[in-house]
Design a binder for these strands. Sequence first.
DNA 1: CAGCATCCGCTCGGATACTG
DNA 2: CAGTATCCGAGCGGATGCTG
Lengths: 122, 122
Amino acid sequence: MTLAYDVFDDRCPTRMVLDRLADKWALLVLDRLQGGPVRFNQLRRDIRGLSQKVLSQTLKRLERDGLIERSVRPTVPVSVDYALTPLGRTLTETVAAFAHWAERNMAAVLSAQAAYDAALTG
Amino acid sequence: MTLAYDVFDDRCPTRMVLDRLADKWALLVLDRLQGGPVRFNQLRRDIRGLSQKVLSQTLKRLERDGLIERSVRPTVPVSVDYALTPLGRTLTETVAAFAHWAERNMAAVLSAQAAYDAALTG
DNA sequence: CAGCATCCGCTCGGATACTG
DNA sequence: CAGTATCCGAGCGGATGCTG
């Protein structure tokens, strides 16, 4: 039988997963990997504002959760690239929709914020 | 003309929006509101582990961003319920897919974690 | 190039107490 | 019921320096 996983229950393991995914950096990494494998420093450059330490942590967690895969090519110096796993690929459509929702609806959000702030001031 | 919003640029305002949405509590609140208006303490009870302070902050931010709407009914004592706005409703499908991905893929994640940890130990 | 190690400020968020 | 106010500890994450 199937266990009744429930993300609204704080003792459910799905909460941990949600916690990992509901992270700005993890989302951007997953979205960036959608087009194919990307190397460490390339990710670091592409995702502006992401420090090397946090990128490292994020990649390690995503790899542990089975969403991405790390592969080392024995060049000199060594090349490491990260790619989505099949499991990770089941998430990318959702991630893309999510990450780019802001780009499509930025104007609406900005005007909502302006209206909200104006109501407080006036 | 349209500005080129880019969520990968840390100076782009979309980053702030992503930061707000990429939040465990915000996601759970939005998901919970999908079925219709819900009152404050009902949300607090439904979303286990969510403190009253953080719920309050989360609701205020979501309201400011125009995703949810607060309405007060003059009962005694007063009733306040929160509902999705049309803008918020454009997100709910994505939010639901996202929030419940963990429930559907929990087994795969758990086994990936076990494999990862075993590789380190062994 | 692809990281790890360390330090540390700052914010998130939990606990608690109080209000209309 | 639906919040606000305050305190405070834990940890996120940025900066810096070093390694194979």
